[in-house]
């Protein structure tokens, strides 16, 4: 856990959001989209913006244990994406997630997510 004491950079301000696992598969905050990926029954909320050129990772395909960005084909290990997902807890159907704070509060949505459910 990144502590406050001795941390190189201050912790990123975050905002709390809740969504229903069965009704929503993504959250939208302004231009930012966060998609839900389920893996081994665990729910992970992942930033959709590809670190290369901002491609929509939620529309990428999962090939084996890697997610391919639909724009330039960048490959990302699914395990690493999940390990670095936004902090969340799930109790039953309700997921609470803490997303980077911005101008817009996150809104749960159901949209096309190709990379989301039961990714290997």
């Amino acid at each position: 856990m990144k502590g406050r004491k001795g941390a190189k950079a201050p912790a990123q301000p975050r905002v709390r959001a809740e969504f229903s696992r069965s009704a929503h598969n993504a959250l939208v905050a302004g231009d930012d989209l966060y998609f839900v990926m389920e893996r081994d029954k665990a729910v992970h909320v992942i930033s959709s913006s590809c670190p290369h050129r901002g491609g929509p990772l939620h529309l990428g395909d999962v090939d084996g244990d890697r997610l391919r960005c639909p724009w330039h084909g960048g490959l990302f290990p699914v395990g690493r994406l999940c390990d670095r997902s936004h902090p969340s807890v799930r109790v039953g159907d309700t997921v609470t997630v803490y997303l980077p704070a911005g101008e817009h509060d996150p809104v749960p949505v159901h949209t096309m997510v190709r990379a989301g459910v039961d990714a290997a």
Partner: peptide, 21 residues
Amino acid sequence: DDSVGVSGQWDEDTLRAHLRH
């Protein structure tokens, strides 16, 4: 184990905020 799950990278501020809430 089915009813409750914890994921992601937690920092101290977020952990404290979650506990407070």
